[in-house]
Amino acid sequence: MNTPSIAICGIGSVTITILHALVQNKVPFTILCQDTLRLESLRTPIHFQGPQGKPKEMQLSEHLEMVNSAKDTFDYIFLGCKNQKLKDYIESTKHLLKPNGKWILIQNGLPEEQFPSLKEKIIGGVVGWNTQYLSTGVYFQSNVGSLILGGADQSQPDSIWHSLLEPWIPVILTEHLLGYRWHKLGINAIINGLAASKQTSLGDLFLNLEHRKEAISILSEIKMVMKQLHIKEEVVPGSFPIQKLGDGESSLPNWIRHLILIVLGLKYFKIRTSMVQDLDHRRKTEIRSINGEVIEAAKRVGVSVPMNEKVVSEVIQLENQY
């Protein structure tokens, strides 16, 4: 097997989970750091715990390089930054990408749409797991989840990704990236966007009747936008179709939809998703790349999405308090 050269630029909860899989499979990789402080911080071992495992220590020192002084070029570069920094990360790493190399964008939302001229150079990565940084200093992956990889140009990525990441991360290769992107966008619009607007855990969110009604309204609006865009939903494994949770065609009875959200709240009762944690730490959120993307798409097809607009407005108000 000819192992491709892989780099990761932007180290956080999602990329730590990917690094864990690469380490376990003894796949070489390079971590590209944007500043010396981040590089020095990564010399300290990282502790990672999978869904059923015990915390493991990962030594990353030998993999570290500064992005502006790296000499090697790579077949693939994972970009693990926030959506709002993507353009800067693309610009700072383009000299390190091989002529036939590709960036892998693992952000939420619709990040590929920022780069229409680079479609042949981009693979979208839809993440199906949740990893949090705990107060104990451990990165904890709370559920087994897939990484769905699909070309922004609707091509199917190389099958080598199965051997690079599995069994630690199940891999799905697809020509239908947009269907998965919109499914995850809908889920994030409630577990990230709506939860951030309330600044609450998933348990407190989905055990509240009024909040569940708002979640269903958000998904109903997204269903209408998808219908107008002629996007067929592709469901991330372990998730639930937003076509069945939102109002209208294919929806389940209302009491079952509420029950599904209650079960979700009970299962992840204490989880404060990434945008809620951003507000907890007085950081800007990615609300414009989640519910904000829904609003922009709705404008293009003439669909009204007042609940998504309300969520964006409320989160921005919370951001502006800090």
Rank of each mutant, 00 (worst) to 15 (best):
P4S: 04
C9P: 00
C9Y: 13
T17H: 13
L22I: 06
V23H: 02
N25G: 05
K26S: 15
F29M: 08
L37T: 11
E40Y: 04
P51D: 12
Q52E: 13
E62Q: 14
H63E: 01
H63P: 00
A70P: 08
Y76V: 11
Y76G: 11
F78N: 03
L79F: 10
C81G: 09
L86C: 01
T93H: 01
T93N: 10
K98G: 02
K98E: 05
N100C: 08
G101W: 07
G101S: 00
K102I: 00
W103A: 01
L105F: 13
Q107C: 08
P111A: 14
Q114P: 00
S117R: 07
L118Q: 10
K121A: 14
I122M: 04
I122Y: 06
I123F: 12
G124W: 12
G124R: 12
G128H: 08
T131Q: 02
Q132E: 08
Y139S: 09
L147R: 01
G150D: 11
G151A: 08
A152N: 14
P157H: 11
D158P: 05
D158Q: 05
S159K: 04
I169Q: 06
L173I: 03
L173E: 10
L173R: 03
T174W: 02
T174P: 02
L185M: 12
L185Q: 09
L185N: 11
G186N: 11
I187N: 00
N188V: 02
A189P: 00
N192S: 02
S197Y: 04
Q199T: 15
L207G: 00
I218Y: 01
K223R: 15
M226I: 06
Q228F: 03
E234I: 01
G238I: 14
S239T: 10
D247A: 14
S250Q: 15
I256N: 01
L259C: 10
F269K: 12
F269M: 02
K270M: 03
R272N: 07
V276D: 00
D278M: 00
L279W: 03
K284R: 15
V294L: 04
E296A: 13
V303R: 09
E309L: 02
K310C: 02
V311E: 08
V315K: 02
